[in-house]
Amino acid sequence: MRIKATPMERLFYLGNYVFLIVVSLLFLIPFISVLSTSFISTAEWARRGNFVLIPEAPTLEAYQFLFGGSKGTVFNAYKITFFRTIVGTVLCLTFTGLGAYVLARRNLPGRTFMTLLVFIPMVFSGGLIPFYLVVDRLRLTNTVWIMITPFLVNPWWLLIMRNFLMTIPVELEEAALMDGANPLTVLLRVYLPLSMPALTTIGLFYAVWHWNGWFYAAVFNSNRDLYPIQVILRSILYLGDASYRGDLGIMFEPEMMPPAQTLKAAMIIVTTVPILLVYPFIQRYFVKGLLIGGVKG
């Protein structure tokens, strides 16, 4: 039971709320500006410029352009993104979880060597071309798996996951084994539920990584039917951006009409809102201490 707050604590809570509200506004206002810009016409944008908080004449013009007509490009890209995000996250979590679980076992012979095996790729890489050749030899190029199979484990997140698992008391496992459980049962019924906060967090990281990923999908693919939504977003965002074209680029680009800001804004909304909605759903996995359920007994 909570004990009645002292005046000092009350002051702290009040200050805390005020502070968080102010900070939230700093995060929110730019987003609102993008949202508002997506709802104005090209003409209004040409007149008012790049920072619009309240649309004068709201319109769905930009969204109609993105989704309208006979073009299935955006829908198709959504399909690819959803596929890679869901399947990719499930596979990543499985691989990462298993790896972390094994590395978290303090008494496992060869554990340091295995950790090193995970660690070295964090520092050294062979660059793009050899990686591409491996991926191509495995016939992954021009398939949707190019965005999934080569990226099953992020070594950083595996090690963070391992550290989480190491905070789970060994006594729980010992007790279960004494009760006659086998290692698989221990994994599924002791460790899995206890690591839900960590799993959902790392899962969220993977999901967002997959959702935001565009580079390999774009650079390792020639088939534009496999472009995820982020590639489309970037095509629109970066068009007409001089810093990315270098000196030669600006020499002669007769078709380089940068799209109106309204279109860019609508594209940003289209690519961010679905993934933003995920977090509140998984948040409940770590609002209450799940670990406690196990030890209370």
């Binding site: 591409y132 191509d136 580079f215 774009a218 650079v219 534009r224 970066y238 951006d241 990315y244 074209r245």
Partner: peptide
């Protein structure tokens, strides 16, 4: 082809030229 956005377009092109897989 539909080239990837920004600098990635050149990256893709160079990769195709070097790997000669396509």
């Amino acid at each position: 082809f539909v080239p990837p956005p920004g600098a990635a377009g050149r990256e893709r092109l160079n990769l195709m030229l070097s790997s000669q897989t396509e």
